[in-house]
């Protein structure tokens, strides 16, 4: 039929329109990094013409080393802490600062401010905060007279360290989810709140019945972003950890990849990258299924 043919053509018309942009993106930003898949099966030092095929050896080496289990646990912890704390905090702050008063605008800008500092800088600064003997946090405790926390070693134990580093990550990056949520909150029509007021709803009920469901799509999007960001975040761990490239107790898989890139076998970090990519893909699938369900229920 003519109309179905026209429909088919119109679909391809759209594909054609976006094709140039997509091709540029793919070539410049994706294609060089696809290297990670074949590289995992070779042993190569990054510059010599000598590339040795080693099959699954890189994967086995990684699986056997303590870096596998410890790194996985650390990655999961990092993502978990980041997701829970950042989401709760940003939702709370976005809701509290919802109205467009001057004070709220000031706070929103203020909370956005750390984003303009580069992560290197943020890490260097927080290094001074966390130092067990001279750091600002411990000075505050000693000034408050809490003797037991005077020499507290914030990064001395992996779980504690990851918590602290995630707080640094949030300190620097809360501007992102806060801004997205603030914008999303604006799209919720005021009348819904007015209607629920009339019906006698408390603020908590308003939040649960009105705000939360309508924020859900934005929240789900932020979830995927947070998980991927947390899994791939290296900057803060690297700066707050060893500066000579030694492994830290709190390294995630992404950090191990980065450290491996400076070594003599690029195949190993590539293997870790494949592992990590596989897990992220599974997470992505889960998010896709959940989002579909939620969005269908809204429309």
């Amino acid at each position: 039929m003519q109309s179905s043919l026209r429909k088919k053509l119109s679909t391809y018309k759209y594909v054609l329109i976006m094709l140039p942009g997509l091709i540029v993106w793919f070539v410049l930003s994706i294609w060089p990094h696809l290297e990670v898949f074949p590289q995992a099966f070779y042993k190569w030092n990054g510059y010599s013409p000598n590339k040795v095929f080693v099959g699954w050896q890189n994967f086995e080496t990684f699986y056997r080393s303590s870096a596998f289990k410890d790194g996985l646990l650390n990655t999961v912890l990092y993502v978990l802490f980041l997701f829970v704390i950042q989401t709760v905090l940003s939702v709370f702050l976005a809701v509290v600062l919802k109205r467009n008063t001057r004070q709220n605008r000031f706070f929103r800008t203020f909370f956005f401010l750390p984003l303009v500092f580069s992560s290197v800088m943020v890490g260097l600064t927080w290094g001074y905060m966390f130092d067990p003997n001279l750091g600002m946090l411990n000075q505050i405790f000693s000034a408050l007279g809490i003797k037991s926390l005077e020499s507290f070693n914030w990064l001395g134990e992996p779980v504690r360290a990851i918590f602290c580093i995630v707080m640094v990550h949030i300190w620097a990056n809360i501007g992102y989810p806060l801004t997205i949520l603030t914008a999303a909150l604006q799209t919720i029509p005021e009348d819904l709140y007015e209607v629920s007021e009339i019906e006698g709803a408390t603020s908590m009920q308003q939040f649960r019945k009105v705000t939360l469901p309508l924020l859900m799509p934005a929240l789900l999007r932020i979830t995927l972003l947070t998980v991927v960001t947390g899994a791939l975040a290296v900057d803060y761990i690297l700066i707050l950890g060893s500066s000579v490239g030694s492994a830290n107790e709190f390294d995630t898989w992404a950090v191990k990849i980065y450290q491996g890139l400076l070594g003599s076998n690029l195949g190993l970090p590539s293997a870790i990258g494949v592992f990590l990519g596989a897990i992220l893909f599974i997470v992505f699938l889960i998010q896709y299924v959940v989002t579909k369900k939620v969005e269908d229920s809204i429309h």
Partner: peptide
């Protein structure tokens, strides 16, 4: 396209430079 954001940058820098 979304999955493209999950690629680990780093290994490909040599190829990237040559490209």
């Amino acid at each position: 396209i979304i999955m493209g954001s999950m690629l680990i940058p780093g290994v490909g820098f040599v190829t990237l430079l040559q490209l």
